[in-house]
């Protein structure tokens, strides 16, 4: 590029050399980054799935799996993930559709509220929840399912933004008007036009929510519920190899979920390409504008 723009013979050397140096620097940075990224993963796999003098083995995992609390805790985590994802969608999709359609003036308020969990550390939410519900409804925090609303709160910034961006890209007013003029009832429009078009962003929101809930530790452990991450810490106390194996597996699962998300949103970006210019630029997190990978990670994870 530079070589084309500079007058002929002006600075041919630097024009040609700079890209090569830059390219080498970039390649080095990428290589170092990849090595550092992969080291803990490879190490946890190697540490978890081998025993000295035995080579590859699933023994360490066996010990953990045979632990009587493994299956119940895994299943309660999966249930929590499914329930909080479902509940988030049930709460947010109708609310957002209604507000976009009938009361767009409320949107700045709801959007502002949706980023509040972002500035409230998970540990602060635990403390507040403990104090509030112990006084108001002492029995509430006993059930493991009481975690669901708090997980909904923690994932809200991401889920809200994903759904909101999906709806904004659609121009649902026009869709409603157009299908009404063709004789469809609002319900038909909703079922046949709006929801199918929102499938990609609902899927994206679900994957994000699942990925975050599966790794959440602070709330579960401090509200004394046994979920999979809590189990992992217990195991890690005296069986580091089993903990490493479980960590590796759970990182891989998280990775797959987020990769699926990238795939889903890449498809959506391609589909709704021209509509993107109408999307508002968000004031806090970059929405999925340029690269699909950005959206999943534009925030701090709740699992920490």
């Amino acid at each position: 590029m530079a070589a084309l723009d500079t007058p002929a013979g002006a600075k041919p050397l630097s024009g040609r050399r700079r890209p090569r140096v830059t390219g080498a620097a970039q390649a080095t940075i990428f290589a170092v980054a990849l090595i550092l990224f992969f080291t803990p993963l490879v190490a946890s796999a190697a540490f978890g799935f081998t025993l000295p003098g035995k080579g590859f083995t699933l023994d360490s995992l066996d010990v953990a799996v045979q632990n009587t609390s493994f299956l119940p805790q895994l299943s309660s985590t999966l249930q929590l993930a499914a329930l909080s994802t479902l509940a988030s969608l049930l709460l947010l999709v109708p609310t957002l559709l209604f507000l976009h359609l009938r009361a767009p003036r409320m949107l700045p308020l709801t959007e502002w509220l949706s980023v509040v969990p972002y500035v409230v550390p998970a540990i602060a939410l635990v403390s507040g929840a403990n104090l509030f519900f112990r006084n108001m409804a002492p029995g509430f925090l006993v059930s493991t399912y009481s975690l669901v609303p708090f997980y909904m709160v923690l994932t809200l910034p991401l889920v809200y933004r994903t759904l909101d961006a999906g709806i904004r890209a659609l121009d649902i007013r026009t869709l409603f008007a157009a299908s009404a003029s063709l004789g469809a009832t609002p319900l038909q429009t909703l079922a046949r036009i709006i929801l199918p078009n929102l499938r990609a962003s609902m899927l994206g929101a679900s994957l994000l929510s699942c990925a975050l809930v599966l790794g959440e530790y602070a709330l579960a452990s401090l509200l004394l519920h046994s979920t999979f991450p809590v189990f992992m810490v217990q195991v890690g106390m005296n069986q580091p190899r089993a903990a490493a194996a479980l960590s590796f597996l759970s990182i891989v699962v998280t990775w797959l979920l987020l990769a699926a998300l990238s795939g889903a949103s890449a498809k959506r970006t391609r589909k709704s390409g021209p509509a993107r210019s109408t999307r508002q630029t968000s004031k806090d997190l970059p929405t999925q504008e340029s690269t699909p990978a950005e959206q999943s990670s534009a925030t701090k994870g709740i699992s920490r």
């Binding site: 190490a43 790794g215 580091p240 960590s247 990670s297 994870g301 920490r304």
Partner: peptide, 20 residues
């Protein structure tokens, strides 16, 4: 990978580092 790593954390990451 950056997208995923920036989301990792918590217990799994801690144990992965212990293993490394």
């Amino acid at each position: 990978f950056s997208a995923v790593a920036s989301q990792l954390g918590g217990v799994a990451l801690a144990f992965a580092f212990v293993a490394a």
